[in-house]
Each structure stands twice: as C-alpha cells, then as structure tokens.
Design a binder for these strands. Structure first.
Length: 151
DNA sequence: GCCAACGTTGGC
DNA sequence: GCCAACGTTGGC
C-alpha cells in the first residue's frame, strides 16, 4: 500500500465537494503534467491520499481519500469544449489518465503548509521542496505517519 | 496582484 | 539539440 498527495483548489473542487459526491467518489480529471500522470499510473486500489487545498486562504492538508479505481483514460482530454482539451491525446492512445478517489475523512484541522515546511521530520517531502509545483506526488510512509501525528 | 519557478513550444 | 518566449502554478 502506497501513500500519495493530491492538490486541488477548493474554489474548484474541495474536500467537501468530494464528500458530497455520490458514494463520496470522484474521478480526478484534468491533470496535464507528465510527472503527475506517471504517479497516477502507479496508484493502486486501496492506496491512501492526502487531499491538499491550494491557492486559497487556508493552504494545507485537509483530509484523506483512497484510490478506488486505477488509472484509465481521462476522457476530458478528448472534448474540444472542455477546458483541459488536448488534441494530441487520442482515444486509441490516450496521453492523459485519471484515477477515481473516494472520500475517507476530513482531518480535525488543516495542517498548514508553513507547519509542514517547518517540520524537520518532513525533509525531502516533494510538497515542500523549493519550486515544486507537482499536483500529484508520493508521500513516504514515515512522512505520512509524521503528518498524521500532527492532526 | 505580484512574481519565482517550472514546463512546453517552436524557431533555428 | 539549444534556448528564448510564453503559459501555468501556487504561495504570499
């Protein structure tokens, strides 16, 4: 079992939005970065995911979800009307993939970015690495545990 | 709104 | 293959 972190702007799709979906489940579409896509292809059913709110007043980890469907074609890339349309992605050879995740729980409080940056136990975490903009990333087991202990 | 950092594109 | 220009991300 592996651990991951996925970023979302709460103004677009928040942890509450995920919880409100039927069965608390949603596809994770719109990823258009190769490294992030590659990580999604590694995800296995049952893997756990930190849900992170970015570009908002309260930036940080807000909840936990789990992977319920492994990588498949992101069909929004085929739709010319979709904001994330990519003409280079073909139905018979999709460039972009998505997974489905399911709401598990909200944390009792947001574990803020500043707090994550300040924790020496989290050295090496991709999220807090200078200049990192990845929206999907792995979380090492010791890091996962250290973050949970902050709750 | 600003801007640093990064990824992508396209001319050469 | 190089690299400048451009677009995006995302914290502040």
């Amino acid at each position: 079992m592996a651990y991951w972190l996925m970023k979302s702007e709460p103004g677009t799709f928040s942890i509450d939005d995920l919880a409100a979906r039927p069965k608390g489940t949603s596809q994770w579409d719109g990823v258009r970065n190769f490294q992030a896509r590659n990580y999604m292809r590694e995800m296995k059913t049952g893997d756990e995911v930190f849900f992170y709110h970015s570009s908002c007043d309260d930036v940080g980890i807000v909840g936990i979800a789990k992977v319920v469907r492994e990588a498949y074609a992101d069909h929004t890339a085929f739709d010319p009307k979709d904001a994330h349309f990519d003409p280079k992605s073909k139905r018979d050879a999709p460039t972009w993939m998505m997974v489905d995740i399911k709401f598990v729980k909200k944390l009792k409080r947001t574990i803020g970015l500043a707090e994550l940056k300040a924790d020496r136990k989290l050295d090496g975490f991709i999220l807090t690495r200078k200049g990192s903009r990845l929206s999907v990333m792995p979380v090492a087991a010791p890091h996962w545990k250290a973050i949970l202990q902050k709750e």
